[in-house]
Nucleic acid binder design. Sequence first.
DNA 1: GTTGACCTTCCCATGATGGGAAGCCGCAAG
DNA 2: CTTGCGGCTTCCCATCATGGGAAGGTCAAC
Lengths: 165, 165
Amino acid sequence: MGIAVNIGQAAEASGVSAKMIRHYESIGLVPRADRRDSGYRDYGPQDVHRLGFVRRARDLGFPLERIRVLLGLWGDPGRSSAEVKALALSHIGELEDKARHLQEMADVLRGLALSCDGDGRPDCPIIAGLEAGPVPPSGPCTGRPTSRSSSAKPPSRRSPSPDRR
Amino acid sequence: MGIAVNIGQAAEASGVSAKMIRHYESIGLVPRADRRDSGYRDYGPQDVHRLGFVRRARDLGFPLERIRVLLGLWGDPGRSSAEVKALALSHIGELEDKARHLQEMADVLRGLALSCDGDGRPDCPIIAGLEAGPVPPSGPCTGRPTSRSSSAKPPSRRSPSPDRR
DNA sequence: GTTGACCTTCCCATGATGGGAAGCCGCAAG
DNA sequence: CTTGCGGCTTCCCATCATGGGAAGGTCAAC
């Protein structure tokens, strides 16, 4: 029937790129599309609708494997909304964990940046913060052990044999 | 001197896995480590220190390419803290953009989940929300199905059946 | 029929990390 | 000294979602 469209139209209508539609088919996220004699894929309204479903789920950050489950629930008349809700809540938790993690990193970095003059001098608490931590044993406390890639390292360190353990 | 260590010790001391240390070397993020006659990599305190720098930068979410720049600034006595700060601020912006994006997705999903009963029945606003959007009408739009009237599927939101035809 | 836009499949790349295989090396116990 | 085990080497593959591009077939307008 005329309602069958090319992958290009399906892509435009669903918001999923043709590349991704083929990919989703290849991993079995969506069923194999019908083909014309020429090999061209044919998409009916339901197919496009399903692709839109996938796209909106992706927009909400669901990974494809979870979308696979969602599609199963979508098509299951006997599903319970509890299943869907549990899946959603679990995903919300993951999203917020990630958001929190990113925000924490930003906060730490902002703390360092706040105390950075940002002028022409090299002294920088940001660099110092990154440099912090376990200072190598027997190494200079190095308020700024900078020149290291440019200048050769004076301290001896290349004995083939000594391997302590 | 005993300060030269194996990749294993360097990994443990720096918090960067041996796998990653080799990878960083292969992409030139850190200079090629000295080798013993056996081919074993040798890491001095400075090398371990640099790896720690990389790890802390990673912990703050810097991508490797940016860490490459940071390492350059670190080792540049003539750097200006303004450069470092600009890099950091730019990165903070990206982190917060991502965090905001994730949080937005979580919020939208939470909104849907709040109105979901989560009981044994199939009716679910979450599924409905994912399904929302232009429902493909079975109308004569052979050529270009672009302008589709919104929502044309009132009957039974149960069992849209992902399987088609 | 020609042409240009579209479709097909297949391979490669991203970014950061890990897993694992095949084979060499180092050290300690026998 | 030999054996054995664990650590080291390189190389390839996998992840996750997406895109780029090549080589070649198809469709529709002119």
